[in-house]
């Protein structure tokens, strides 16, 4: 008798179209980008759109090679990354502290949360002009704006993470006569880690968005600057290359976060 296996709950798949069924997942994923590239290539080759609105892909490619070879792209990426790392570190540390303080103490929460929420309502972009007047347009401005981007989600998620720790675990801590510090270190923080991680994820995304914003408005180096500059000179190839660089940095950060999260998840499973 043949062994038939099927996992309950998985809706049976409709028979797929032959064409795609034959292609691997990786190959199918490439269909759309290749189609877009082809269309782009044909469009610029036939001159459907002026060069200034849509440069030829070959031209963009060459430009990218030049910019990589000259170190220009790497330099601007480095500048942006440095800003994000510093700003994010400051903002995340402050946000984590505020989140923990508000999470652990209702008094702190009562005092700080309304003001914090009011502060959080103003989009990061809103702060840029105000801070430009206060601190000028140099490095401090960028760091503050990026830090603010990380601060709000970090504080918020840490706070909710701590508040949502199940009282049952806390009771275990009471039963074992844990000190306040043990309670925090052994129960509350580990239980709040997934939520804190969400804070890190949003914080990093917001930092990165804020960075691009502040570099667009006030900077003479960095990837955001490259965007504005390319735009002003009508060098669309530069704009596209900068966008790709921004996308790649975003992608790497995302992957990094994912694997860290996996690591944490594994540790969580190992513990259970």
């Amino acid at each position: 008798m043949a062994v038939i296996s099927e996992f309950f709950g998985h809706a049976r798949l409709r028979p797929r179209k032959r064409l795609l069924g034959r292609l691997g997942t990786g190959a199918t994923a490439l269909v759309l980008p290749v189609a877009i590239l082809t269309l782009w290539w044909v469009a610029s080759d036939r001159g459907w759109l002026p060069q200034q609105i849509l440069p030829a892909p070959a031209y963009v490619y060459e430009m990218a090679r030049d910019m990589i070879a000259s170190g220009e792209i790497l330099y601007h990426t480095g500048v942006s990354l440095r800003r994000v790392i510093i700003g994010f570190a400051i903002g995340a540390a402050l946000g984590l502290s505020l989140g923990i303080a508000m999470g652990l103490s209702e008094v702190v929460e009562d005092y700080a949360k309304p003001l914090f929420l009011a502060f959080a309502q103003i989009p990061t972009l809103g702060w840029i002009p105000l801070l430009m007047l206060l601190v000028g347009i140099d490095e401090t401005l960028k760091i503050i704006i990026i830090a603010k981007g990380a601060f709000v989600p970090m504080a918020m998620n840490t706070f909710t993470g701590i508040r949502n720790v199940s009282p049952r675990y806390i009771e275990v801590g009471h039963a074992l006569r844990f000190s306040r510090w043990q309670q925090l270190r052994l129960i509350i923080l580990p239980a709040a880690i997934p939520s804190i991680f969400t804070g890190i994820r949003y914080g990093l995304t917001h930092s990165w968005t804020s960075l691009v914003g502040v570099e667009l408005l006030a900077s003479s180096e960095g990837l955001g600057y490259l965007l504005v500059w390319g735009r002003q000179m009508f060098w669309l190839d530069t704009v596209i290359i900068a966008m790709i660089a921004i996308g790649i940095v975003g992608f790497v950060m995302d992957k990094g976060l994912n694997s860290t999260e996996h690591l944490i998840q594994r540790w969580k499973k190992g513990e259970a």
Binding site: Q52, L216, L223, L227, F234, L236, V239, M243, G247, G250
Partner: peptide, 19 residues
Amino acid sequence: TFNAVKQISLLAWIPLISV
């Protein structure tokens, strides 16, 4: 493709959109 494109930070679209 969507997953790749979404990595481009929102504000970075502005120059291209303005063109």
